[in-house]
């Protein structure tokens, strides 16, 4: 069984302590909802989970073994969706998706790509250069990558931003299917909270002391 957890994580950005002594644990088929006001550190925690930044203290644990930051083996287990859509303007919608699946060496599976584009109803736009897409369409293209990945752990940073109602529901369905397949999810969100989700409020771990005080102790 897959388990992803963090133990006594502390993170600082600049001089500010974003959170201290934060623990979390997500098991197979579970969703962890990160909540908190803007700027409270939801994105920071997700970036930390993805290994993009390293914690000052504490460790991340995947299936009982500690995750070394920058460890290559861990990268195949998760998929990270950040604020930015990572879409190349010069390439068409389909090429963007293909480049991604090639990069993750998932192969040129025609039916998979077609199905992925279909999920977010991007099939009609597939030959359009990505520079013509609207913000919502870009987000949808970014999220289609979820349909092509084999990752167990999804780390989603406000995935429903700039999505219309219909697409949010598609995303919800995707999340449910992934959950049913035994996937693990960590989501920062203001809206999609489904019954049964674990909720982690970042503000519970915030520390009003700044970094200098921490050093003095």
């Amino acid at each position: 069984m897959d388990v992803f957890s963090g133990e006594s994580l502390t993170c600082i950005r600049g001089d500010r302590v974003v959170f201290t002594n934060l623990n979390f644990s997500i098991e197979e088929g579970e969703v962890l909802n990160l909540q908190g006001p803007n700027g409270s550190g939801k994105s920071t925690l997700l970036r930390l989970m993805a290994g993009l930044i390293s914690p000052l203290e504490g460790k991340l644990i995947w299936n009982g073994s500690e995750v070394q930051i920058q460890e290559r083996d861990f990268c195949i287990y998760f998929h990270y969706v950040g604020h930015q859509d990572a879409i190349k303007n010069a390439l068409t919608v389909e090429e963007n998706l293909r480049f991604w699946s090639d990069l993750r060496s998932l192969g040129q599976n025609e039916s998979m790509i077609k199905r992925a584009l279909d999920t977010f109803s991007l099939t009609d736009l597939s030959s359009l250069p990505a520079r013509f897409l609207s913000a919502g369409q870009r987000k949808r293209l970014n999220l289609t990558r979820l349909c092509t990945t084999t990752a167990r752990l999804w780390i989603l940073d406000e995935p429903a931003n700039s999505l219309d109602k219909e697409s949010s529901e598609i995303l919800n369905d995707l999340i449910k299917v992934h959950q049913k397949d035994g996937g693990i999810l960590a989501i920062a969100t203001h809206d999609i909270v489904m019954p049964g989700n674990k909720i982690l409020n970042i503000t519970d771990f915030s520390d009003t002391k700044n970094f200098k005080d921490l050093n003095d102790e």
């Binding site: 083996d73 990270y80 859509d85 990572a86 879409i87």
Partner: peptide, 11 residues
């Protein structure tokens, strides 16, 4: 555009 994050996270 954020692609760099994905490249860094590549195996």
């Amino acid at each position: 555009d954020g692609s760099l994050e994905l490249l860094v996270l590549h195996p």
